[in-house]
Amino acid sequence: MIAFDDVTFAYPGGPALFDRLCAVFPKGRVSAVAGPNGAGKSTLLKLAAGLLLPSLGRCSVDAIPLGQATPLDRAKRVAYVPQNSLLPGDWPVKDIVALGDYPHREKPPAPRPIKQRLNEAREALGLQAIWERPAATLSGGEAQRVVLARALVQETPALLLDEAASHLDLRSQVMLHHLLGRLAGDGRSILLATHDVNFPRLWGFDLFILGRSGHLAPFPNKEEEQGALLEKVYHTPLIPTKLDGITCWFPDPGKGKHEAGIMNAE
């Protein structure tokens, strides 16, 4: 369980991004947070990862507050995959993935033998073909899979992914979403930041919408409420389409052109 208790946060010199935010992302579920650019999705994830500390309130994983934990203790509980990562170009993929074992190596015990975790991560993210290759030769999507594998090796109760599918091709996206569902099934808490308001619901994940005011709302069930919330948050006309019995929302190309003009004028 990833919990935010009365979390207030502002970057130095900036306005408060979150004001007394309360939220719970339960164990055994994949939770996705969507919202417009600049609403603070990445900041929310960094707070949940303990990389940023709230000015008031606290973030915790399985009821253990991250603020007081040492970096190693924190890394044994939460794994974090950033939007962009920096991979040392001359390192082979297998050694980068193995870095996920760092917190367990520095502070035993390890959850399971490292060989087992490495093999599973390699299979799960389809890295067999690039396992020995240096990072400098990887494509964006391959690099993203390597960083995901590293987070799997970390084998933490909580997993945070910041737009983890942004560079992935369609097949890899499907692979990743299956994997996330399976990991949540094992009893982990998973939190994603995403731009897509449709795929989380198609995959049976929980969706939350983060508005510009730092307000986090669960995605409503009724179609009218969904449309109203999305248009209010994104300032863009959307049209609903039924897919598998789930209402998906897409930007309306006809009206969008007109509205985009208005947005530029703002």
Binding site: A49, P71, A75, K76, Y80, P88, W91, L99, E106
Partner: peptide, 20 residues
């Protein structure tokens, strides 16, 4: 040396892996 290895990553990544 294992911690020094992590300094090659982005700061946030190294921090998330538990390096001070």
């Amino acid at each position: 040396s294992r911690t020094l290895d992590l300094l090659l990553l982005a700061d946030d990544e190294a921090l998330a892996l538990g390096a001070d």
